[in-house]
Design a protein around this nucleic acid. Structure first.
Lengths: 111, 111
DNA sequence: TGCACATTCAACCAAACGGTTGACCGTTGC
DNA sequence: GCAACGGTCAACCGTTTGGTTGAATGTGCA
């Protein structure tokens, strides 16, 4: 179940959160370690991680007293796929894509 | 000069703006025509278009008294390239696209 | 000339965002 | 047992966002 595009794009709109995702690309990390390079409070980073988790861009698993953060590229893939539709390159599957667009147009709230 | 990712992703985070982009995929449109299907004021749509233009996702050209809006996929492409760094997925992954489409159509609530 | 149309401007509003601080809670280890 | 650590919660704050309304600007046309 991927999160709505709203949540995904909103999560990606913040440079701190994008930097966090880039860090997680290297390896899974604990919340404190994620926070370390940033010039802001741990609580702020904790909130950013909640936003990323709500968008399904990461998952968090608590082992002992440390909470591990893991990159979850599927949600980003969904957004990327949505964006690819605007490239207008791919000759294939335009029909399916137009069905998708139509669904979105008919129901913008949930697009 | 593509707009910063901040602006691009923030612009894409709103369902109204994504719907507008989808409409512009069909053809260039005047501001009033863009506004027509939406249940909100023309001024609100005008603001949305400014956001999209600031993100370089569209361009606006005034001919006579009507301002034409044109999709500008390059900015979106820049964001797409950034995202591709996170996925082990290709620029155009039709398989993922079709899985996404299916999920989209079966479960419009979470699309 | 003057009205109708296309669009923006300006002021305003409620809600969401991104950050802070300090208290709090569960876990670990001496 | 208890202090230190890892992380969240709660309250607060200033700014941004997404919308409204009404007035203003500029263009087209009879």
């Amino acid at each position: 179940m991927t999160a709505p595009l709203d949540a995904i794009f909103a999560a990606l709109a913040d440079p701190t959160r994008r930097a966090i995702l880039a860090m997680l690309l290297e390896d899974d990390m604990a919340v404190t370690d994620v926070a370390h390079p940033f010039a802001m409070s741990l609580a702020a980073i904790s909130k950013h991680l909640v936003v990323l988790a709500d968008a399904d861009l990461i998952t968090q698993e608590k082992r002992g007293r440390v909470k591990w953060c893991k990159l979850e590229p599927d949600a980003m893939r969904a957004a990327s796929v949505w964006m690819q539709g605007f490239g207008q390159f791919e000759p294939v599957n335009l029909e399916a894509f137009e069905r998708f667009l139509e669904a979105e147009l008919n129901d913008p709230e949930n697009a």
